[in-house]
């Protein structure tokens, strides 16, 4: 690992100044479970490592009547074990607890999981299904970007060098039912071969998948097909076919493209069948 300057700002403003003063050579250290491995392997050699964990207020899960906001430094374990999240949004809790090991989740954050923009980010699929918004702090203050527009490509987001994600929020939807599914080679402490969240709210459906495209994705065509329909065996089969066609997975050492496609169908079929 190459040496670097270690800075620990105590306000967003200070953090922003550090970003500006170092012209893109800053790596934000949150949980660090990804960054430290990347630095060690030489994939990342920043001049400055900026630890944001001492910025007050970012470590809260704020539950308002109509919205829930997850702060930037909220740990995956704290998210997954939060009573409100567990009760009302169990699929989000499950997704959070499906990342890494207990030790990793004691360090890794939900926002870090999102900002890494891995195609198979486990917490991305429930948050995509919840139509979550990403809150970004920059020179013009706070701006909000829908999560679906936040991801650009593998490990690429719309985030600019002089911006910090302060949190992610979603509108409370007491009626929403969701099912998170993760398929992996090994049940515990593994990356998703594929993962998905299937959500029903009223007569609408929202479907999101990970590890089937360069970014986590929503399956809008399949959602549109299901919208307003009464679920029957035939409808489900049709939806599964559509979903399998809508994803664009690749073959890699974890699974083939064909297997991933087929599993998208299986996950959707199993989820929808719960609501038959």
């Amino acid at each position: 690992m190459k040496t670097f300057e270690y800075l620990r700002p105590t306000s967003l403003k200070e953090a922003l100044d550090i970003l500006k003063n170092h012209d893109g050579n800053v790596s934000i250290l949150n949980g660090g479970t990804d960054l430290i491995v990347r630095m060690r392997e030489g994939h990342s050699s920043p001049e400055v490592v900026m630890d944001i964990k001492k910025i007050p207020g970012l470590d809260q899960i704020q539950v308002d009547e109509d919205r829930i906001t997850i702060g930037a430094t909220v740990l995956l374990n704290d998210l997954g074990l939060n009573e409100v999240i567990k009760t009302r949004y169990p699929y989000l809790a499950q997704a959070a607890l499906s990342v890494g090991s207990k030790q990793v989740r004691n360090r890794a954050t939900c926002i870090g999981n999102i900002c890494n923009a891995s195609p198979l980010a486990d917490t991305a699929t429930p948050l995509l299904a919840l139509n979550a918004d990403v809150h970004i702090y920059g020179e013009e203050g706070i701006k909000t970007v829908p999560l679906k527009d936040f991801f650009v490509f593998v490990r690429k987001t719309v985030l600019k060098p002089n911006e910090i994600v302060t949190g992610i929020s979603f509108k409370q939807d007491p009626e929403a039912l969701g099912i998170f599914t993760k398929m992996s080679r090994r049940k515990e402490v593994d990356l998703s071969t594929v993962c998905s969240t299937v959500m029903r709210t009223g007569t609408e459906y929202r479907i999101s998948c990970g590890a089937v495209a360069p970014t986590p994705v929503r399956l809008f065509k399949t959602e549109a097909f299901l919208s307003g329909k009464t679920l029957t065996g035939e409808v489900i089969e049709e939806a599964c076919k559509l979903a399998e066609g809508e994803v664009v997975p690749i073959s890699d050492i974890r699974a083939s493209e064909a297997y991933r496609r087929e599993m998208v169908g299986v996950m959707l079929r199993r989820a929808l069948s719960e609501w038959l």
């Binding site: 660090g32 430290i36 090991s101 030790q103 360090r107």
Partner: peptide, 11 residues
Amino acid sequence: ALNACLVLAVE
């Protein structure tokens, strides 16, 4: 419980 290999000493 943390993995000490994933934490910087300065932290």
